[in-house]
Design a protein around this nucleic acid. Structure first.
Lengths: 225, 225
DNA sequence: GGCGCCTCTTCAGGTTGCTGTCAGCTTGGC
DNA sequence: GCCAAGCTGACAGCAACCTGAAGAGGCGCC
Protein backbone atom coordinates (compact mmCIF):
# COMPACT_ATOMS: atom_id res chain seq x y z
CA UNK A 1 0.00 0.00 0.00
CA UNK A 2 1.32 3.38 -0.95
CA UNK A 3 1.24 6.17 1.60
CA UNK A 4 2.13 9.82 1.27
CA UNK A 5 3.59 11.48 4.31
CA UNK A 6 3.53 15.27 4.31
CA UNK A 7 5.65 16.49 7.16
CA UNK A 8 8.49 18.96 7.49
CA UNK A 9 9.88 17.91 10.85
CA UNK A 10 12.75 15.58 10.17
CA UNK A 11 12.62 13.59 13.39
CA UNK A 12 8.90 12.97 13.26
CA UNK A 13 9.04 12.25 9.57
CA UNK A 14 11.74 9.66 9.97
CA UNK A 15 10.03 7.97 12.84
CA UNK A 16 6.72 7.76 11.02
CA UNK A 17 8.28 6.78 7.72
CA UNK A 18 10.30 3.99 9.31
CA UNK A 19 7.35 2.75 11.26
CA UNK A 20 5.11 2.61 8.22
CA UNK A 21 7.81 1.00 6.15
CA UNK A 22 8.19 -1.64 8.84
CA UNK A 23 4.54 -2.45 8.38
CA UNK A 24 5.29 -3.25 4.78
CA UNK A 25 3.95 -0.16 3.08
CA UNK A 26 5.63 2.10 0.57
CA UNK A 27 6.10 5.62 1.83
CA UNK A 28 6.70 8.81 -0.07
CA UNK A 29 7.77 11.64 2.14
CA UNK A 30 7.06 15.21 1.06
CA UNK A 31 8.56 17.94 3.19
CA UNK A 32 6.74 20.80 1.50
CA UNK A 33 3.33 21.53 0.08
CA UNK A 34 4.81 21.87 -3.37
CA UNK A 35 6.35 18.41 -3.13
CA UNK A 36 3.06 17.00 -1.94
CA UNK A 37 1.28 18.54 -4.89
CA UNK A 38 3.73 16.98 -7.27
CA UNK A 39 3.43 13.63 -5.60
CA UNK A 40 -0.33 13.42 -5.76
CA UNK A 41 -0.22 14.54 -9.35
CA UNK A 42 2.05 11.65 -10.15
CA UNK A 43 0.94 8.75 -8.00
CA UNK A 44 -2.15 7.36 -6.39
CA UNK A 45 -2.01 6.91 -2.67
CA UNK A 46 -4.03 4.72 -0.41
CA UNK A 47 -3.59 7.18 2.42
CA UNK A 48 -2.17 10.62 3.04
CA UNK A 49 -0.73 11.69 6.37
CA UNK A 50 -0.77 15.45 6.46
CA UNK A 51 0.90 17.92 8.75
CA UNK A 52 -0.82 21.27 8.54
CA UNK A 53 2.06 23.57 9.29
CA UNK A 54 4.62 23.50 6.55
CA UNK A 55 7.26 26.01 5.55
CA UNK A 56 5.73 26.84 2.20
CA UNK A 57 2.06 27.02 2.93
CA UNK A 58 -0.92 25.69 4.75
CA UNK A 59 -1.73 22.02 4.56
CA UNK A 60 -5.42 22.86 4.50
CA UNK A 61 -5.04 24.43 1.09
CA UNK A 62 -3.44 21.27 -0.16
CA UNK A 63 -6.29 19.26 1.27
CA UNK A 64 -8.91 21.50 -0.32
CA UNK A 65 -7.25 21.27 -3.70
CA UNK A 66 -7.28 17.53 -3.38
CA UNK A 67 -10.96 17.37 -2.55
CA UNK A 68 -11.79 19.89 -5.22
CA UNK A 69 -10.40 17.47 -7.75
CA UNK A 70 -12.77 14.84 -6.36
CA UNK A 71 -9.83 12.94 -5.01
CA UNK A 72 -11.21 10.89 -2.15
CA UNK A 73 -7.94 9.52 -0.85
CA UNK A 74 -8.24 9.13 2.92
CA UNK A 75 -6.39 11.92 4.70
CA UNK A 76 -5.32 11.83 8.30
CA UNK A 77 -4.18 15.15 9.66
CA UNK A 78 -1.24 15.22 12.02
CA UNK A 79 -1.43 18.21 14.28
CA UNK A 80 0.83 19.58 16.96
CA UNK A 81 -0.94 19.61 20.29
CA UNK A 82 -4.65 19.56 20.40
CA UNK A 83 -5.62 22.66 18.53
CA UNK A 84 -9.32 22.70 18.13
CA UNK A 85 -9.28 25.46 15.56
CA UNK A 86 -7.04 23.29 13.40
CA UNK A 87 -9.16 20.32 14.07
CA UNK A 88 -12.41 21.88 13.06
CA UNK A 89 -10.90 23.56 10.01
CA UNK A 90 -9.36 20.27 8.98
CA UNK A 91 -12.56 18.31 9.22
CA UNK A 92 -14.38 21.03 7.33
CA UNK A 93 -11.80 20.82 4.59
CA UNK A 94 -12.24 17.14 4.07
CA UNK A 95 -9.92 15.38 6.47
CA UNK A 96 -11.01 11.91 7.53
CA UNK A 97 -9.31 11.72 10.85
CA UNK A 98 -6.97 13.24 13.32
CA UNK A 99 -3.81 12.33 15.15
CA UNK A 100 -2.46 14.65 17.78
CA UNK A 101 1.31 14.90 18.14
CA UNK A 102 3.06 13.37 19.81
CA UNK A 103 0.91 10.48 18.69
CA UNK A 104 1.20 6.82 19.38
CA UNK A 105 2.73 4.97 16.48
CA UNK A 106 0.66 1.98 17.48
CA UNK A 107 -2.47 3.99 16.98
CA UNK A 108 -1.18 5.14 13.64
CA UNK A 109 -0.58 1.51 12.70
CA UNK A 110 -4.15 0.68 13.68
CA UNK A 111 -5.56 3.38 11.47
CA UNK A 112 -3.35 2.34 8.60
CA UNK A 113 -4.54 -1.23 9.04
CA UNK A 114 -8.11 0.01 8.87
CA UNK A 115 -7.39 1.75 5.60
CA UNK A 116 -5.57 -1.32 4.33
CA UNK A 117 -8.61 -3.45 5.01
CA UNK A 118 -10.66 -1.21 2.80
CA UNK A 119 -7.89 -1.00 0.27
CA UNK A 120 -7.24 -4.62 -0.54
CA UNK A 121 -6.10 -3.80 -3.99
CA UNK A 122 -2.82 -4.37 -5.72
CA UNK A 123 0.35 -2.87 -4.36
CA UNK A 124 0.50 -0.02 -6.82
CA UNK A 125 -2.26 1.28 -9.00
CA UNK A 126 -1.42 0.54 -12.59
CA UNK A 127 -2.73 2.77 -15.27
CA UNK A 128 -3.52 1.00 -18.51
CA UNK A 129 -3.42 3.04 -21.64
CA UNK A 130 -3.54 1.44 -25.03
CA UNK A 131 -2.26 -1.89 -23.77
CA UNK A 132 0.55 -0.16 -21.92
CA UNK A 133 0.67 -0.82 -18.22
CA UNK A 134 2.16 2.14 -16.48
CA UNK A 135 3.15 1.89 -12.86
CA UNK A 136 3.69 5.51 -12.23
CA UNK A 137 4.87 5.15 -8.68
CA UNK A 138 7.56 2.66 -9.52
CA UNK A 139 8.36 4.32 -12.81
CA UNK A 140 7.88 1.15 -14.72
CA UNK A 141 6.17 0.45 -17.98
CA UNK A 142 5.07 -2.94 -19.23
CA UNK A 143 3.97 -3.84 -22.69
CA UNK A 144 2.46 -7.26 -23.22
CA UNK A 145 4.15 -8.60 -20.15
CA UNK A 146 7.54 -7.31 -21.10
CA UNK A 147 9.09 -4.55 -19.08
CA UNK A 148 10.15 -1.56 -21.09
CA UNK A 149 13.14 0.31 -19.79
CA UNK A 150 12.92 4.03 -20.32
CA UNK A 151 15.63 6.62 -19.83
CA UNK A 152 15.04 9.67 -17.69
CA UNK A 153 14.11 11.87 -20.63
CA UNK A 154 11.91 9.31 -22.26
CA UNK A 155 10.06 8.91 -19.02
CA UNK A 156 9.66 12.66 -18.76
CA UNK A 157 8.01 12.75 -22.14
CA UNK A 158 5.68 9.89 -21.30
CA UNK A 159 4.95 11.62 -18.04
CA UNK A 160 3.95 14.78 -19.85
CA UNK A 161 1.64 12.84 -22.14
CA UNK A 162 0.18 11.06 -19.17
CA UNK A 163 -0.61 14.24 -17.29
CA UNK A 164 -4.04 14.26 -18.87
CA UNK A 165 -4.58 11.00 -20.69
CA UNK A 166 -6.53 11.54 -23.83
CA UNK A 167 -5.81 15.24 -23.94
CA UNK A 168 -3.68 16.93 -26.53
CA UNK A 169 -0.35 17.98 -25.15
CA UNK A 170 1.49 20.74 -26.95
CA UNK A 171 5.08 20.42 -27.95
CA UNK A 172 5.88 23.35 -25.72
CA UNK A 173 4.57 21.73 -22.61
CA UNK A 174 6.51 18.57 -23.36
CA UNK A 175 9.57 20.71 -23.73
CA UNK A 176 8.84 22.28 -20.36
CA UNK A 177 8.61 18.85 -18.84
CA UNK A 178 11.97 17.94 -20.29
CA UNK A 179 13.85 21.04 -19.32
CA UNK A 180 12.85 22.40 -15.99
CA UNK A 181 13.42 26.04 -16.78
CA UNK A 182 14.91 28.19 -19.43
CA UNK A 183 17.50 25.75 -20.66
CA UNK A 184 17.23 26.73 -24.27
CA UNK A 185 17.02 23.75 -26.52
CA UNK A 186 17.93 24.83 -29.96
CA UNK A 187 16.99 21.76 -31.88
CA UNK A 188 14.19 19.33 -32.32
CA UNK A 189 14.90 17.47 -29.13
CA UNK A 190 11.27 16.91 -28.31
CA UNK A 191 10.71 15.22 -31.61
CA UNK A 192 13.77 13.10 -31.11
CA UNK A 193 12.51 11.86 -27.78
CA UNK A 194 9.07 11.27 -29.12
CA UNK A 195 10.68 9.18 -31.77
CA UNK A 196 12.66 7.19 -29.25
CA UNK A 197 9.62 6.72 -27.05
CA UNK A 198 7.57 5.52 -29.98
CA UNK A 199 10.23 3.05 -30.90
CA UNK A 200 9.98 1.55 -27.45
CA UNK A 201 6.28 1.60 -26.73
CA UNK A 202 4.95 1.22 -30.24
CA UNK A 203 4.63 3.80 -32.93
CA UNK A 204 0.87 3.90 -33.01
CA UNK A 205 0.47 4.75 -29.36
CA UNK A 206 1.43 8.37 -29.75
CA UNK A 207 -0.64 10.31 -32.21
CA UNK A 208 0.67 13.45 -33.84
CA UNK A 209 -1.74 16.30 -34.38
CA UNK A 210 0.01 18.70 -36.66
CA UNK A 211 0.34 22.16 -35.29
CA UNK A 212 -1.43 21.17 -32.09
CA UNK A 213 0.60 18.64 -30.26
CA UNK A 214 0.58 14.99 -29.31
CA UNK A 215 -1.82 12.61 -27.75
CA UNK A 216 -1.62 9.23 -26.12
CA UNK A 217 -3.92 7.00 -28.10
CA UNK A 218 -6.24 5.24 -25.67
CA UNK A 219 -7.96 3.29 -28.39
CA UNK A 220 -5.14 1.80 -30.39
CA UNK A 221 -7.22 -0.73 -32.22
CA UNK A 222 -9.52 1.51 -34.12
CA UNK A 223 -7.30 3.78 -36.03
CA UNK A 224 -8.55 4.60 -39.46
CA UNK A 225 -5.54 5.49 -41.47
CA UNK B 1 7.80 -13.30 26.24
CA UNK B 2 11.01 -12.52 28.06
CA UNK B 3 12.38 -9.02 27.83
CA UNK B 4 15.63 -7.57 29.14
CA UNK B 5 15.58 -3.98 30.24
CA UNK B 6 18.97 -2.30 30.59
CA UNK B 7 18.47 1.01 32.34
CA UNK B 8 20.07 2.74 35.30
CA UNK B 9 17.48 5.42 35.94
CA UNK B 10 15.22 4.15 38.67
CA UNK B 11 12.08 6.06 37.75
CA UNK B 12 12.20 5.20 34.08
CA UNK B 13 13.11 1.64 34.83
CA UNK B 14 10.18 1.12 37.12
CA UNK B 15 7.72 2.73 34.77
CA UNK B 16 8.86 0.65 31.85
CA UNK B 17 9.10 -2.55 33.85
CA UNK B 18 5.59 -2.14 35.21
CA UNK B 19 4.18 -1.28 31.84
CA UNK B 20 5.72 -4.29 30.17
CA UNK B 21 4.72 -6.56 33.00
CA UNK B 22 1.15 -5.31 32.64
CA UNK B 23 1.24 -6.50 29.06
CA UNK B 24 1.98 -9.96 30.32
CA UNK B 25 5.66 -10.25 29.59
CA UNK B 26 8.48 -11.30 31.87
CA UNK B 27 11.00 -8.55 32.53
CA UNK B 28 14.57 -8.75 33.73
CA UNK B 29 15.94 -5.42 34.74
CA UNK B 30 19.68 -4.85 34.57
CA UNK B 31 20.99 -1.58 35.98
CA UNK B 32 24.54 -2.01 34.78
CA UNK B 33 26.37 -3.30 31.75
CA UNK B 34 27.88 -6.08 33.79
CA UNK B 35 24.47 -7.26 34.90
CA UNK B 36 23.21 -7.17 31.34
CA UNK B 37 26.13 -9.29 30.20
CA UNK B 38 25.38 -11.86 32.84
CA UNK B 39 21.72 -11.90 31.94
CA UNK B 40 22.19 -12.50 28.24
CA UNK B 41 24.71 -15.19 29.03
CA UNK B 42 22.08 -16.99 31.06
CA UNK B 43 18.77 -16.40 29.34
CA UNK B 44 17.39 -15.89 25.86
CA UNK B 45 15.40 -12.76 25.37
CA UNK B 46 12.83 -11.91 22.78
CA UNK B 47 13.75 -8.27 23.01
CA UNK B 48 16.31 -6.05 24.67
CA UNK B 49 15.61 -2.47 25.64
CA UNK B 50 18.94 -0.74 26.00
CA UNK B 51 19.87 2.58 27.50
CA UNK B 52 23.24 3.71 26.20
CA UNK B 53 24.47 5.71 29.15
CA UNK B 54 25.14 3.49 32.10
CA UNK B 55 27.36 3.97 35.13
CA UNK B 56 29.76 1.19 34.28
CA UNK B 57 30.19 1.62 30.57
CA UNK B 58 28.70 2.33 27.23
CA UNK B 59 25.68 0.40 26.06
CA UNK B 60 27.13 0.34 22.57
CA UNK B 61 29.88 -1.98 23.74
CA UNK B 62 27.30 -4.33 25.08
CA UNK B 63 25.42 -4.20 21.83
CA UNK B 64 28.55 -4.89 19.78
CA UNK B 65 29.48 -7.85 21.92
CA UNK B 66 26.02 -9.23 21.39
CA UNK B 67 26.14 -8.87 17.63
CA UNK B 68 29.62 -10.21 17.47
CA UNK B 69 28.33 -13.43 18.91
CA UNK B 70 25.79 -13.50 16.07
CA UNK B 71 23.05 -12.90 18.56
CA UNK B 72 20.27 -11.34 16.55
CA UNK B 73 17.95 -10.53 19.43
CA UNK B 74 16.06 -7.38 18.54
CA UNK B 75 17.51 -4.41 20.37
CA UNK B 76 15.73 -1.13 20.83
CA UNK B 77 17.95 1.66 22.06
CA UNK B 78 16.51 4.09 24.55
CA UNK B 79 18.23 7.40 24.19
CA UNK B 80 17.91 10.66 26.05
CA UNK B 81 16.83 13.43 23.75
CA UNK B 82 17.27 13.07 20.08
CA UNK B 83 20.97 12.66 19.73
CA UNK B 84 21.88 11.90 16.20
CA UNK B 85 25.40 10.93 17.07
CA UNK B 86 23.98 8.27 19.35
CA UNK B 87 21.54 7.27 16.76
CA UNK B 88 24.06 6.77 14.01
CA UNK B 89 26.49 5.03 16.30
CA UNK B 90 23.70 2.80 17.52
CA UNK B 91 22.56 1.78 14.09
CA UNK B 92 26.14 1.17 13.08
CA UNK B 93 26.51 -1.12 16.04
CA UNK B 94 23.48 -3.18 15.16
CA UNK B 95 20.50 -1.63 16.93
CA UNK B 96 17.15 -2.34 15.36
CA UNK B 97 15.28 0.69 16.48
CA UNK B 98 15.18 3.75 18.59
CA UNK B 99 13.02 5.25 21.25
CA UNK B 100 13.70 8.77 22.34
CA UNK B 101 13.15 9.61 25.97
CA UNK B 102 10.77 10.61 27.24
CA UNK B 103 8.99 8.07 25.12
CA UNK B 104 5.40 7.13 24.88
CA UNK B 105 4.65 3.88 26.64
CA UNK B 106 2.01 3.17 24.03
CA UNK B 107 4.62 3.30 21.35
CA UNK B 108 6.77 0.95 23.33
CA UNK B 109 3.83 -1.42 23.59
CA UNK B 110 3.33 -1.29 19.83
CA UNK B 111 6.92 -2.23 19.17
CA UNK B 112 6.79 -5.01 21.67
CA UNK B 113 3.63 -6.29 20.02
CA UNK B 114 5.41 -6.29 16.69
CA UNK B 115 8.24 -8.32 18.10
CA UNK B 116 5.78 -10.65 19.77
CA UNK B 117 4.01 -11.25 16.50
CA UNK B 118 7.23 -12.43 14.94
CA UNK B 119 8.25 -14.31 18.04
CA UNK B 120 5.20 -16.51 18.38
CA UNK B 121 4.32 -16.92 14.79
CA UNK B 122 6.56 -17.48 11.86
CA UNK B 123 10.14 -16.77 12.65
CA UNK B 124 10.56 -13.81 10.34
CA UNK B 125 9.12 -12.83 7.05
CA UNK B 126 11.72 -13.71 4.50
CA UNK B 127 11.65 -11.81 1.31
CA UNK B 128 13.03 -13.56 -1.72
CA UNK B 129 14.31 -11.36 -4.49
CA UNK B 130 16.22 -12.77 -7.39
CA UNK B 131 17.40 -15.79 -5.45
CA UNK B 132 18.38 -13.68 -2.50
CA UNK B 133 16.70 -14.51 0.76
CA UNK B 134 16.45 -11.45 2.88
CA UNK B 135 15.42 -11.69 6.49
CA UNK B 136 14.72 -8.10 7.10
CA UNK B 137 14.08 -8.28 10.80
CA UNK B 138 17.17 -10.30 11.59
CA UNK B 139 19.29 -8.39 9.13
CA UNK B 140 20.50 -11.48 7.41
CA UNK B 141 20.92 -12.26 3.78
CA UNK B 142 21.31 -15.67 2.22
CA UNK B 143 22.33 -16.44 -1.30
CA UNK B 144 21.99 -20.02 -2.46
CA UNK B 145 22.10 -21.27 1.09
CA UNK B 146 25.19 -19.32 2.00
CA UNK B 147 24.89 -16.51 4.48
CA UNK B 148 26.22 -13.22 3.23
CA UNK B 149 27.65 -10.93 5.84
CA UNK B 150 26.97 -7.29 5.19
CA UNK B 151 28.43 -4.30 6.95
CA UNK B 152 26.19 -1.63 8.38
CA UNK B 153 26.41 0.60 5.34
CA UNK B 154 25.97 -2.20 2.89
CA UNK B 155 22.87 -3.23 4.72
CA UNK B 156 21.58 0.31 4.70
CA UNK B 157 21.91 0.42 0.93
CA UNK B 158 20.15 -2.91 0.51
CA UNK B 159 17.51 -1.73 2.92
CA UNK B 160 16.88 1.35 0.84
CA UNK B 161 16.55 -0.72 -2.30
CA UNK B 162 14.20 -3.05 -0.48
CA UNK B 163 11.90 -0.29 0.67
CA UNK B 164 9.88 -0.80 -2.49
CA UNK B 165 11.04 -3.96 -4.19
CA UNK B 166 10.92 -3.56 -7.90
CA UNK B 167 10.70 0.18 -7.74
CA UNK B 168 13.39 2.55 -8.83
CA UNK B 169 15.17 4.12 -5.91
CA UNK B 170 16.96 7.38 -6.49
CA UNK B 171 20.53 7.88 -5.46
CA UNK B 172 19.37 10.64 -3.17
CA UNK B 173 17.11 8.43 -1.18
CA UNK B 174 19.86 5.87 -0.81
CA UNK B 175 22.07 8.62 0.46
CA UNK B 176 19.40 9.63 2.92
CA UNK B 177 19.26 6.09 4.16
CA UNK B 178 23.02 6.05 4.66
CA UNK B 179 23.31 9.32 6.47
CA UNK B 180 20.49 9.91 8.83
CA UNK B 181 20.92 13.62 9.00
CA UNK B 182 22.55 16.22 6.85
CA UNK B 183 26.02 14.77 7.05
CA UNK B 184 27.06 15.96 3.64
CA UNK B 185 28.90 13.29 1.81
CA UNK B 186 31.09 14.95 -0.70
CA UNK B 187 32.07 11.97 -2.72
CA UNK B 188 30.61 9.02 -4.51
CA UNK B 189 30.09 7.00 -1.38
CA UNK B 190 26.76 5.69 -2.54
CA UNK B 191 28.34 4.32 -5.68
CA UNK B 192 31.12 2.75 -3.71
CA UNK B 193 28.67 0.90 -1.50
CA UNK B 194 26.62 -0.15 -4.42
CA UNK B 195 29.76 -1.55 -5.89
CA UNK B 196 30.54 -3.47 -2.71
CA UNK B 197 27.02 -4.71 -2.38
CA UNK B 198 27.04 -5.92 -5.94
CA UNK B 199 30.26 -7.72 -5.39
CA UNK B 200 28.65 -9.58 -2.52
CA UNK B 201 25.18 -10.32 -3.77
CA UNK B 202 25.91 -10.56 -7.46
CA UNK B 203 26.43 -7.80 -9.93
CA UNK B 204 23.30 -8.45 -11.92
CA UNK B 205 20.97 -8.10 -8.99
CA UNK B 206 21.19 -4.35 -8.84
CA UNK B 207 20.30 -2.58 -12.03
CA UNK B 208 21.49 0.94 -12.72
CA UNK B 209 19.11 3.25 -14.47
CA UNK B 210 21.14 6.24 -15.46
CA UNK B 211 19.75 9.49 -14.24
CA UNK B 212 16.94 7.74 -12.40
CA UNK B 213 18.39 5.54 -9.76
CA UNK B 214 18.79 1.88 -8.94
CA UNK B 215 16.54 -1.09 -8.86
CA UNK B 216 16.62 -4.50 -7.33
CA UNK B 217 16.21 -6.84 -10.24
CA UNK B 218 13.51 -9.36 -9.50
CA UNK B 219 13.83 -10.86 -12.95
CA UNK B 220 17.55 -11.00 -13.45
CA UNK B 221 17.37 -13.05 -16.59
CA UNK B 222 15.27 -10.93 -18.86
CA UNK B 223 16.88 -7.71 -19.83
CA UNK B 224 14.95 -6.14 -22.65
CA UNK B 225 16.77 -3.45 -24.45
C1' DG C 1 49.97 -0.33 24.74
C1' DG C 2 50.97 -2.29 20.33
C1' DC C 3 49.36 -4.77 16.55
C1' DG C 4 46.31 -6.42 13.13
C1' DC C 5 41.86 -6.43 11.19
C1' DC C 6 37.86 -4.35 9.56
C1' DT C 7 35.00 -0.67 7.91
C1' DC C 8 34.29 3.84 6.14
C1' DT C 9 35.51 7.43 3.08
C1' DT C 10 37.88 9.67 -0.51
C1' DC C 11 40.18 9.93 -4.81
C1' DA C 12 41.51 9.07 -9.52
C1' DG C 13 41.26 6.89 -13.71
C1' DG C 14 38.52 4.21 -16.66
C1' DT C 15 33.97 2.96 -18.83
C1' DT C 16 29.29 3.45 -20.32
C1' DG C 17 25.46 4.90 -22.56
C1' DC C 18 22.34 8.98 -22.41
C1' DT C 19 21.86 13.26 -24.62
C1' DG C 20 21.60 16.90 -27.98
C1' DT C 21 22.60 18.04 -32.57
C1' DC C 22 22.36 17.63 -37.32
C1' DA C 23 21.13 16.15 -41.89
C1' DG C 24 18.32 14.05 -44.83
C1' DC C 25 14.04 12.04 -45.22
C1' DT C 26 8.71 11.56 -44.97
C1' DT C 27 4.17 13.34 -44.30
C1' DG C 28 0.21 16.26 -44.65
C1' DG C 29 -2.09 20.52 -46.06
C1' DC C 30 -3.17 23.46 -49.63
C1' DG D 1 3.93 20.30 -56.64
C1' DC D 2 5.44 23.06 -52.90
C1' DC D 3 6.30 24.06 -48.27
C1' DA D 4 6.13 23.61 -43.51
C1' DA D 5 5.99 20.38 -39.95
C1' DG D 6 7.47 16.35 -38.28
C1' DC D 7 10.46 11.97 -38.16
C1' DT D 8 14.59 9.33 -37.43
C1' DG D 9 19.43 7.35 -37.98
C1' DA D 10 23.99 8.54 -36.86
C1' DC D 11 27.43 10.35 -34.00
C1' DA D 12 30.45 12.97 -30.85
C1' DG D 13 30.65 14.66 -26.25
C1' DC D 14 30.20 14.34 -21.74
C1' DA D 15 27.95 13.55 -17.39
C1' DA D 16 26.98 9.66 -14.80
C1' DC D 17 28.70 5.76 -13.12
C1' DC D 18 32.11 2.01 -11.64
C1' DT D 19 35.92 0.25 -9.13
C1' DG D 20 40.63 -0.49 -7.32
C1' DA D 21 43.57 1.49 -4.08
C1' DA D 22 44.86 3.71 -0.08
C1' DG D 23 44.44 6.62 4.13
C1' DA D 24 41.89 7.28 8.50
C1' DG D 25 39.79 5.68 12.32
C1' DG D 26 37.82 2.31 15.48
C1' DC D 27 37.84 -2.02 17.73
C1' DG D 28 39.38 -6.44 19.55
C1' DC D 29 43.12 -9.40 20.77
C1' DC D 30 47.35 -10.36 22.78
Amino acid sequence: MRILLVEDDRAIGEAVRDHIAALGHAVDWARRISEADESVAVAHYALILLDLHLPDGNGLDFLRRLRKRSDATPVIVLTARDQYSDRIAGLNSGADDYLVKPFDLGELAARIAAVARRYNGNPDPVLTVAGLEIDHAARRVHLEGQEIVLTAREWAVLDALLARPGAIVSKDSIEDALYAFGSEVESNTVEVYLSRLRKKIGRERIVTLRGLGYQLADTPKRRSK
